[in-house]
Design a protein around this nucleic acid. Structure first.
Ligand SMILES: [Mn+2]
Ligand SMILES: [Mn+2]
Ligand SMILES: [Mn+2]
Ligand SMILES: [Mn+2]
Lengths: 217, 217
DNA sequence: AAAATTTTTTAGATTTATCTAAATCTTTAA
DNA sequence: TTAAAGATTTAGATAAATCTAAAAAATTTT
């Protein structure tokens, strides 16, 4: 199959292409892989040779169907393992990402299906991200970021767009976990911080935090 | 930490040193790693530099305490994951070894302890092999091979000393699974095959199979 | 539209793990 | 106790993934 490195490149390219329209740039990949642009160029040639990406020099890349399928499989595994770690092994949501980064490369189709079954076919991972089914399909959750909401609007927290431990621990401390209902009281013009109501309690959230909270209304 | 390759070398060296007295030979390792003797020599130098083995040119190797500790950790993980796959995900005992070969390299001390807890601190893996505890200790099971038993002796199957799928499937078919009580009726002089009684049923087992069945009396 | 800046690619090394073939050491056997 | 056989190590190459520095292309600014 594909090497760990190839799988990681595919996954990053997939996430970057989800994040915005158009082709994915070399530097964005280098940034995501914590490597240098020159290394990325080398790998892009390799992935292109394997028909996993469409690549034109200087023009960025897109995943082919084959590449997209491979990428989604890795994402599926990553999220299922995160559910396993939280639901079965009692890890906190801020502890599971790094372990799942390793587990996502375990290579056994049967294992993934058995795991999915064992977990009760969960639809979301501990961070609210959708889990692709065995055919690679998942609901396109039309969530909005807290920063896109307006004064007076209310919603329920359904996910986060950052998975770092410090961020998640901070949210936990604020009580802003998945399922929490909130209402926007005020958006501060000066620093973009958001004042909101949560369980009859008024709290203030910095712009940096608000940017990574996902809600449904 | 150590690379996958280093971990695999340590594990092979550990298993080989358990199997017989004295130092472990280069060719034995090459055989276990499915690689060439020259590659083994390269790696032995590296492991020696890291103080994981004691190595004298042409004289074979032994694990240092550090190396042994590392090796036992990998064995612990391998066996715990096998229990997980069989007990929780309903895999058969002949399907789990290869997946565990991958899972054993997942690098998280907490994960191992949580998994052990989740599984109820099992003492044996699905093949009857002892699972080291978190300090690396495990019972030295004084089991004997079926080929070492004598006519009239009886015992209970507690393990196997081969983990290949064809062998385990064959045993399953014969009904010779762990926990089965047997009694030796006859040992055939001509081909070394063993005739035995199992659940009021008389069956014959070839020498090749008998060599890999472990019993306690 | 030319200049400056940014992005991307190439060229040439490096590291890790592997290999084959040849050399060297150890063991076995005559 | 030498010769042959067997095991192990060295020498020199290769493939994968990475790097730095320099060259080339694309984009943005003047
Ligand atoms: Mn994650
Ligand atoms: Mn997640
Ligand atoms: Mn095994
Ligand atoms: Mn086992």
């Amino acid at each position: 199959m594909h090497s760990f490195t190839e799988e990681n490149y595919l996954k990053i390219i997939y996430h970057l292409s989800q994040a915005e329209e158009g082709t994915v740039q070399t530097n964005a990949i280098a940034n995501g892989m914590k490597t240098k642009a020159a290394s990325v160029t080398d790998m892009l040639k390799k992935l292109s040779d394997k028909n996993l990406i469409d690549y034109i020099k200087y023009q960025g890349v897109t995943l082919t169907e084959k590449g997209k399928t491979a990428a989604i499989k890795i994402v599926r595994k990553h999220r299922l393992w995160e559910v396993f770690l939280v639901d079965k092994l009692k890890f906190r949501w801020d502890e599971v990402h790094d372990i799942a980064e390793e587990l996502e490369h375990i290579n056994s189709a049967v294992l993934v299906e058995r795991l999915d079954d064992f977990l009760g076919f969960p639809k979301r991972d501990p961070h609210g991200d959708p889990i692709p089914d065995q055919h690679g399909n998942f609901e396109d959750l039309e969530n909005i970021h807290l920063t896109e909401m307006t004064k007076g609007q209310s919603g329920i927290i359904v996910g986060v767009s950052e998975h770092s431990s410090p961020f998640l621990i901070h949210l936990e401390k604020l009580g802003l976990t998945i399922g929490t209902a909130i209402k926007i009281i005020e958006i501060t013009a000066y620093d973009g911080s958001v004042e909101l109501m949560m369980n009859d309690q008024k709290i203030n959230v910095s712009k940096k935090v608000a940017e990574h909270i996902l809600l449904k209304s």
